[in-house]
Design a protein around this nucleic acid. Structure first.
Lengths: 139, 139
DNA sequence: TATAAACCCTATCGGAATAATAGGGAAACA
DNA sequence: TGTTTCCCTATTATTCCGATAGGGTTTATA
């Protein structure tokens, strides 16, 4: 299940990508337009800033803006930053690998094998989908 | 993230499919061989029984057995029974659809659009993968 | 330089879901 | 008749999520 954090994060990025002619967008505006709790959204945008996806400008007239072109922001990166691993099981995660407690041999584990295929399939979608594409497709 | 319930369920099915020459397999055996809590496994197998995937035989020499051929047990069905929806967001779920509270128009929602593609991709894997295939691939 | 707008950071909390445990009941076979 | 094994319900411990609270810091601008 996708967390609301990730869901809101993608919505916010979408909003910024649509509106922004490089002008910062304020939390309050996104919060209102997308029906997201102000404070919660604040923490999400902060995460995206630390991840190097968004930049922020303080003070009056400030807000958040895309640090790169929307076509350089891939969904795989966004989801990894907000949600964590894309894999459904740590033992098949590329960026968050962890061995299972049970399961003496991964190569003989059917769950491992199955989830590996699911991960590859999912990654195939997310890795090739940029924010720019997503926005233009959905308009 | 895949729950342990689902993970254990798939492992148990695998075990039964491998071992069974139509003889019932006891919870205690699977529990020991696959390092799964006995009582927890019990509830999982019960779920699979109610789902029409496993049959059970009581009394001495009893246990659980596959109700159909392993090639007729698709992973999509197993996961839906144990985990619930395959989609990462209720608004793109085929079997567990639910509208989002926020989001006035699904067609214009980038999250909806993205998760639709992920679901289709995942389903493509799970729908075409039978228990029999999985077992033979992993041996 | 004062002020207000806006981002930045930490802590906390309630509720839901998960993983596991406990204890007994009912059926089937020897 | 007694043992094995599945069947069912309830409870608990833990973790995570979503949200809230409250204040701090920076910056533009009047």
């Amino acid at each position: 299940m996708l967390s609301k954090k990730t869901k809101y994060g993608i919505k916010a990025l979408t909003y910024i990508a649509k509106v922004s002619d490089k002008n910062p967008v304020q939390i309050a505006v996104i919060s209102k337009e997308e029906n997201i709790s102000h404070k919660f959204l604040e923490s999400i945008l902060l995460t995206l800033k630390k991840a190097g996806i968004l930049g922020a400008k303080k003070g009056k007239g400030g807000g958040y803006y895309l640090l790169r072109s929307a076509s350089d922001v891939m969904m795989s990166e966004v989801i990894r930053q907000l949600e964590g691993p894309i894999a459904m099981v740590p033992c098949v995660s590329l960026n968050f690998y962890e061995k299972c407690d049970d399961c003496p041999d991964e190569d003989k584990c059917t769950v491992h094998k199955l989830m590996l295929e699911v991960r590859d399939s999912t990654l195939g979608v997310l890795k090739n989908k940029s924010l720019a594409q997503l926005v233009s497709e959905t308009n």
